[in-house]
Design a protein around this nucleic acid. Structure first.
Lengths: 361, 361
DNA sequence: TTGGCAAAAGAGATCGATCTCATTGGGTGT
DNA sequence: ACACCCAATGAGATCGATCTCTTTTGCCAA
């Protein structure tokens, strides 16, 4: 009320600082900090006095100042190539939950698979002095920004994808084995013309050969499928293999291309959700019934698969758990653990009803 | 190499600070700052000398210190109730793009519709001194944390939901009108038994009356539907109205409940993606064909709808644009604009093939 | 009464970048 | 030759919380 116009009248002027609380409680900053921070020795009476003042001024610590002093931000940066697919989304849930219960905030940035944005994101996060970085790298080759420069010690853990020549810790799925198992399943059902629809960075078009810069997850899936072909003594037919940017129109175009071959594949392994959607759309266009005229296996389970008919067979990855493991590994490194580690979790092939048996071969 | 063990040998010890750059370039901190920051007056020669030193030491500014000094973090906080649905996801895209091109980072936190987590998220973001907050509030009643306390001036813009008694700016969809239009469409096709499946906070069960704490978006949709009933002179049948927590099992249970009424509704308006999935699953269980035995309209378009058969009619909200507008409004307030504003964007009813005509009534 | 000692509280430095306000220097005009 | 001015740079303060290192206070025993 009768505040005589000091700099901070506690009304709406400025946020209260520790020193304002100290003044109101008539103690020093050090004492106020002790009382609020619950360390050192403070009288019960003083503690209450300070608490009261803090409440009266609606005091909130300035985390910037605190981080500055402590050198820790209790924040990890998460850089993902694509937030919108089910895999990433669930993983992020795991990441947020795990980091949250360890007292860390997560700063999630999306790059849409663009290395430039990724570089920028990493720079910003390092400038914000995050304590650690979890990265789904967009590129296999352009990786200079991943390993922190001199002294930029914030540890890095790669998520879902590893980089061959970079000794960075990673948490990934056993994509090779999953892909191979899918092909094996097709083969067991009599398929010998098996198509591969592999999703790459969104800005790519579609083509039959592996793009120069393909991330490990996609490579592993391609290699796994090839291993599956080899298991069955099948030769690879390049016109049944398609790499496509992970965006609806491109996926559709690539799927159309696959299905317009003659002979056309009788089965398709779709490398991600977009590819699966593209394959479904293209199949429908030319009147192929899934699970009868065309067999299909996709990567990653999604909510809508529960209502899609026929029920689609998919490779289910332990998304949430991957996220948790990645955080746990990252935080152990934040804590000083120097041991390098690469975690690989297995995927599960869930065969529902989109793989048909072929009698004649 | 022959570094004589100073505190910072530039190898892997500590991140270089401005003062390290200044020392190496043999200038003062002030000059180094000027050279790097591109302000004030500096000789071309000095500028290069400093740039060289910065590069040699791999210098990165410490954003904490900078923000501390400037009082700005160039960061906005985004608190959403549920990242995983298509609506939020697309909106976040719009938010990130818009804020990014205005030079702001976005800090996205997810609350899963839990007010406690929301309060915590807002507290953390305020402590991190974000310049503004974009919030999808989880509750209509527990809102004390939304209006920043005294002096915590970071402006707040509500997203997708408004709070009746709180004079906060908001950016929302015309849910009332959209919902009414959907009901009108049902009515035009001869439907007189119209079910409502409204999604609420994830932790709720399902019930026929409006939960005490229902966010504006859901309320508006309910009211809009009721208005649609009134337009047609239809009475409300409470057993055709179901409020359900937005999580798969609950949505399914609620949908089952709706469809087990007798007489059962011939049309259902599903309040969000989960409700739509629940309705589809429940309809399939009892062998109702969508677009023939049961008509259906959902809220929000999603990628999988492109391949679902029959094509489902949905209310499409301008998700991306909503995000952009919200950021633009928020940043104008960050910039000092005091004018209060509420933006309402219209939704579009896309009628595909899930609304059947009923001949007899 | 006074020494001694522990409990409680205060003073001041620190984190790193930025910015205001000097200060230095070289040059020019008369 | 001297004053003056401007370009270029440096010194030091500032942002706010924390923490170490004093300093003060209070209490008890001798």
């Amino acid at each position: 009320m009768g505040d005589s116009g000091g700099a901070r009248d506690g009304r709406t002027r400025k946020a209260a600082r520790l020193i304002d609380v100290a003044r109101l409680a008539d103690v020093s900053r050090a004492t106020a900090a002790r009382a609020l921070g619950g360390y050192g020795v403070v009288t019960q009476e003083t503690r209450e006095k300070v608490a009261e003042a803090a409440k009266a001024l609606d005091y909130r610590v300035n985390d910037l100042a605190r981080s500055m002093r402590s050198g820790k931000t209790l924040t990890i940066g998460v850089v993902v190539a694509d937030i919108s697919n089910s895999f990433t989304l669930n993983s992020i849930r795991g990441i947020i939950d795990a980091s949250g219960s360890a007292g860390y905030q997560s700063l999630v940035l999306n790059t849409d698979g663009d290395v430039r944005r990724e570089r920028e994101a990493v720079r910003v996060l390092r400038e914000k002095r995050v304590d650690g970085l979890l990265i789904v790298p967009a590129s296999r080759l352009d990786v200079g920004h991943l390993a922190g420069g001199r002294g930029h010690g914030a540890p890095v853990v790669l998520f879902d994808r590893f980089i061959d020549d970079l000794p960075l810790d990673s948490v990934v799925t056993a994509d090779f084995e999953a892909s191979r198992a899918a092909v094996n399943l097709f083969v067991e059902h009599g398929h010998r013309r098996i198509g591969l629809l592999l999703g790459t960075a969104a800005h790519h078009g579609h083509q039959d050969s592996e793009p120069h810069d393909t991330v490990s997850a996609v490579r592993e899936r391609a290699r796994g499928a090839l291993a599956g072909f080899a298991d069955a003594g099948l030769a690879v037919n390049p016109s049944w293999v398609r790499y496509a940017g992970s965006v609806a129109p491109t996926a559709l175009a690539a799927a159309r291309h696959l299905l317009s071959q003659s002979p056309r594949p009788t089965a398709i392994l779709a490398g991600n959700e977009e590819m699966l959607l593209g394959a479904l759309a293209a199949a429908e266009e030319i009147g192929l019934a899934i699970g009868r005229d065309l067999s299909l296996i996709g990567f990653d389970d999604a909510p809508w698969l529960a209502v899609f008919r026929p029920p689609l067979s998919v490779i289910q990855r332990p998304t949430y758990e991957l996220g948790r493991r990645a955080v746990s590994l990252l935080l152990s490194k934040v804590g000083g653990n120097r041991r390098s580690e690469s975690i690989v979790l297995p995927a599960t092939l869930i065969n529902r009803a989109s793989v048909a048996s072929i009698s004649d071969h």
